[in-house]
Design a protein around this nucleic acid. Sequence first.
RNA 1: UGGGGCGUGGCCAAGUGGUUAAGGCACGGGGUUUUGAUCUCCGCAUCCCAGGUUCGAAUCCUGGCGCCCCAGCCA
Length: 559
Amino acid sequence: MNDSSTEPQSTNFIRSIIDADLASGKHKKVITRFPPEPNGYLHIGHAKSICLNFGIAQDYPSAVCHLRFDDTNPGKEKSEYIDAIKEDVRWLGFSWDDNSHHTSDYFDQLYAYAVQLVKQDKAYVDSLSAADTKAYRGNLTEPGIDSPFRGRSIEENIDLLERMKTGEFAEGEHVLRAKIDMAAPNMNMRDPAIYRIKHMAHPMTGDKWHIYPMYDFAHCVSDAIEGITHSLCTLEFEDHRPLYDWFLDELKTPAHPQQIEFSRLNLDYTVMSKRKLYELVEDGHVHGWNDPRLPTLSGMRRRGYTANAIRDFCSRIGVTKKDNIIEMSVLENSLREDLNSVAPRALAVLDPIKLIIDNYPEDQEETLAGVNHPKNPDAGTRDIPFSKTLYIELSDYMDDAPKKFFRLTVGREVRLRFAYYVTCTHVVKDDSGNVTEVHCRYDPETRGGKSEDGRKVKGTIHWVSAQHAVTAEVRLYDRLFTIPAPVAEKERDFKEFINIDSAQVLANCQLEASLLNANTTAYQFERQGYFCLDSVDSKPGSLVFNRIVTLRDSWAKKK
RNA sequence: UGGGGCGUGGCCAAGUGGUUAAGGCACGGGGUUUUGAUCUCCGCAUCCCAGGUUCGAAUCCUGGCGCCCCAGCCA
């Protein structure tokens, strides 16, 4: 008997390629890599790549996935990001064991390979200004023109490169370029830069270097050095692949990894680029990288998303080469599925109004048992105090209610969850007509929420005993943007579409007493959604809950 | 208008010449239910277009059309 989970592993075209490579004997074991640049926080788009790369490492025998920080640009990178990135990957449930690397680990080897290229007359030091380089490159329809420095001798190039390395020249004075073809239809092959001068200390190598390698050169060589078999990246690198292969072929590296491209993840009603997320953070539209409305992994974690849900989501969306915009409902479905199975239930009134049971004794109090999880008896029950004055949800009462409104209106009977049946008798309103109190009578024969006579009560509402309630702040989050594809609006700035109601703060929520001891797991507030303590702002004396996601609401749809 | 990709239902996505064209999400409807939740049952496409090859095409060929990416000394 094998009782291990038989969870179907979604396959994709990349796994098919790997299967074929293993079958043909091209590779004995698979090595992938996840190569973030430490210049910002990871988002759910990265999670897709992480699940793909680390997922392959998990599923194939003796396969591994390296974590590699692509730190070739000290002008943009900070070591602070490294720990955050590691934390996010770990939180998602993946490990890299002792395979955490930095591209900067290979700077010496990279340089030696560059020298080799020069010696093969496949690279040269160019002294054109940045502006001239651009002008010489041509454009999409016109070929470029050779730089006047393209014909320098190997000796001169070696000398110049060495002096670039030792910091003899100013930034921008020279650049090492591959000698390929200035007329190539693929712009990437028009003598791309290999090294540029940057008089800048590097987080890992300090002030050792004055030149830093470019992505196209560093990435393929690093992959080769690490023995990566399949180098998975996103679609925009597709026309870099000829260059990736050119470098490795010219350098005759011991290994020649295969670059395979897949489409990046796009989610509707949000943005997914580091630059745009940075803009939202910098301009104060959200409160930091871990704002619960952001699709960053740190924001989602704070919001209450589970790693399980994100992994499940990634397996559901698949991996292809097609541009896509995934609907938020797919993510929410993965989330609800996970949360529903594990979240303990609780009663919480977010928008309270008093419900007074006129025929319930003034000073009486009793304790009722609430089921912690309807599908899991092992979760047990908890005590919930009940008394004459309760809080119920304002929206659970309506003056002129339609027949299909299964809640309170004068003359209608509902069940108070786990408690009694109550029938609404009248309401009290203030001068402006707002309901301030709902009055009702209860049926003592319905304790626990069931009646002997088999009478049907269609509606069940949640409540909290006023004198026992815990007051807390609850933050309700909604989509960050008002349109599905804010970045697709070419003529307008995506920030114009920010949803100004994306974060609603309710300061006077009334929670059942047991929530006073809430821990860090997610709870389902019955009939409302899933909530968890805010890891940043919640304090023992003043609880703050985040709404992770609402429950499905078919009644709301009908209305 | 150079080069590289992509085009299967509202959104994803299987499918690789013979299947009633998987599955998920969404949507619509029925049942169960002390959460209008969960669970459950049912419904929901002829494959961008046009020709062609073939007994037979989403799958092969030809020609269109549409969308995305590339002119950083960013990654």
